[in-house]
């Protein structure tokens, strides 16, 4: 019976895969040339990289909501009862320590570069934020987490900063021009950089906090 069920499931999913594959290889003639539309509007978007223009300007509303998703995950994790502190964690080796001191400044530098580069080439707040979070986690693993203890008490202000700034821009544009996130093209570049800068910081802090989970840091006072 069980063998029959698993065979039926496999057959069903193979059929689904075939239908999907047939669908994605059918010739289509979309009536709209979206790449051309994006290229045409790029001049007034404030940035010259099309993906960044879509993320922060044309569909900036999606990006605002997506930053909120990160906050929800963080709130969902933080409201769980804290785990007991881990027992007998391994001592940090010398190699890891040395590597961390070598890599940390580089990671921070590259994260900031990625933010800056996003305006003209692949890069942006998410890529930079992920890298900065990686730096934070590396610091944590290498036992260089003194600065994180201090951040712990400011977790929510730091995590909310990105959304708060984005929200302020959204409210400001709504009040000034009556259009949500209608960035004036003369200032769009600056506004995007400001939004992305704070978003990068909040994304990095949120990701590190998600990695830490349910408040383990609180147990080890400096």
């Amino acid at each position: 019976m069980k063998a029959f069920a698993s065979a039926a499931l496999a057959l069903l999913l193979a059929g689904l895969a075939a239908v999907l594959a047939w669908t994605v290889t059918r010739p289509v003639t979309p009536g709209r040339d979206v790449p051309a539309l994006i290229a045409g509007a790029l001049d007034v978007s404030g940035v010259s990289h099309p993906v960044t223009a879509v993320l922060l300007n044309f569909r900036g509303y999606d990006t605002l909501l997506e930053l909120v998703v990160l906050l929800i995950a963080l709130a969902g994790v933080r409201c769980l009862a804290p785990l007991p502190p881990p027992r007998g964690s391994a001592p940090v080796g010398g190699v890891l320590r040395e590597l961390a001191s070598l890599l940390l400044p580089v990671l921070v530098l590259v994260a900031v570069y990625l933010l800056w580069a996003g305006a003209t080439r692949p890069g942006g707040a998410f890529q930079g934020g992920a890298l900065l979070a990686a730096a934070g986690i590396l610091a944590l693993l290498a036992g260089r987490d003194r600065f994180l203890w201090r951040l712990e008490h400011r977790l929510w202000p730091l995590a909310c900063l990105g959304v708060a700034v984005f929200l302020a821009v959204a409210a400001g544009t709504l009040a000034a021009g009556g259009v949500l996130l209608g960035l004036p093209s003369a200032h769009a570049g600056t506004l995007i950089l400001v939004i992305e800068g704070f978003a990068l910081l909040s994304i990095a802090v949120t990701l590190v906090a998600l990695f830490l989970g349910t408040g383990e840091l609180e147990d080890r006072d400096p």
Partner: peptide, 27 residues
């Protein structure tokens, strides 16, 4: 369509959502 930047931006959004959901699930 080849080189369409719009889906690329959508995927970045999707990845962030996936990371958030996975982190919540793992915790």
């Amino acid at each position: 369509a080849p080189g369409d930047p719009l889906p690329q931006a959508l995927v970045i959004t999707g990845i962030v959502v996936a990371v958030a959901a996975t982190a919540l699930g793992l915790n």
